[in-house]
Design a binder for these strands. Structure first.
Lengths: 193, 193
DNA sequence: GCATTTATGTAGTCAATGACAACATTGCGA
DNA sequence: TCGCAATGTTGTCATTGACTACATAAATGC
């Protein structure tokens, strides 16, 4: 019995294997031909699904954003206000910690440089949602006298920054995990608290 | 008159041209052979100075960190306390805005993945200095009751995050520059107060 | 059912690249 | 000044991204 001519679900397999490679070797260590080898298909097969390497990376980034958005959506259970802001920010940071490599892809200038319209649109809508949360929290009385734009910038910066500091090796201090986790929560509380 | 056999200062020329390329095409668009062409030397000449592409990127990152440290050093003129913290954080963010591509190199996981000991040591000492500033500010009465580790995490996250939000195109809102600058300052003031 | 169209995979090829080795030229110090 | 180390060149190789022509499977319409 020989290999079937068609792989079955090459597109999905490519995305999954690519994500594995990314966490091992990063964007530069990822090659379309290497993926083809790993999956036992011909060297040009991946091109049927992603016509360039950039397109593959973009698809992974898209997957990442969807996953991130889903993760933060759960925080909607909280009523608007400080608890909800805290939940949203923590959801983001925890998602980044749990999906380090996807997070790195989203942070990689070489990937985002070629971001598709889909991707940028999704990111923009994500930002809009965060902005709306700020407004809602202010309506509920939180920091009502501050400029919403400043609060928005602060929230986005702090969230992105905490995610980066929490996932990039360079920043990893020799701090035990429980302590680190509680530091993250306390740090966020400095803002929302 | 023919070209001299030796370039004269190829190493420096490589670093400069590479930085230009990086801001145009990013890490993936940078090639040792392309640099050689641009500088009119043979395709293998760059290898005399940087035996791999990663080594070149590391050298650029090293240059970047030195430049960043120098930029933040000026804030030392302020006396320890909130004004000094604010000055340090603003110096970082403004450096990132003025040196976007160097900042992107420092933020690029593919570069930092191969960071040399020099580079990580320098980054660690930079972090230590920030930690010391926190302590000094607390000694001067600022947020004296907070956990220094939490304040440190907060400062690093907020600084890195603001720099990223201020330099990555994805985040660039249609906000006029003066307004953006004042937002940055106000956002940082939310923390250093 | 069957033919035609579309999706998917293969084989072959090309230019660009990173990396290495062998050799050439220059300049500096003993 | 002589020799050696630094620097640059030429030649080469495997890998890669990307393209083309072709093969096969699958879906669709009749």
């Amino acid at each position: 019995m020989t290999q079937p001519y068609h792989h079955g679900n090459l597109r999905q397999a490519l995305l999954e294997r690519a994500t594995e490679i990314l966490s091992e070797k990063g964007v530069e260590g990822l090659s379309l031909r290497g993926l083809a080898r790993d999956l036992g298909v011909s060297h040009a097969a991946p091109l049927r699904h992603f016509s360039t390497k950039a397109e593959l990376l973009n698809a992974i980034a898209l997957e990442g954003v969807c996953s991130l958005i889903a993760a933060t959506k759960k925080a909607d259970a909280q009523t608007p206000g400080t608890a909800r802001l805290r939940a949203i920010m923590l959801a983001y940071v925890n998602w980044a910690i749990a999906n380090t490599e996807l997070h790195h892809v989203l942070r990689n200038p070489d990937v985002m440089r070629h971001a598709s319209d889909d991707l940028t649109t999704l990111l923009a809508s994500f930002a809009a949602r965060q902005k709306a949360e700020i407004r809602a929290a202010q309506d509920a009385g939180w920091r009502a006298d501050e400029d919403p734009d400043v609060l928005f910038l602060h929230l986005v910066s702090l969230t992105a920054g905490t995610a980066i500091v929490s996932t990039e090796e360079v920043y990893q201090q020799r701090v035990p995990l429980p302590k680190r986790q509680s530091n993250i929560e306390d740090s966020i509380d400095l803002f929302v608290g």
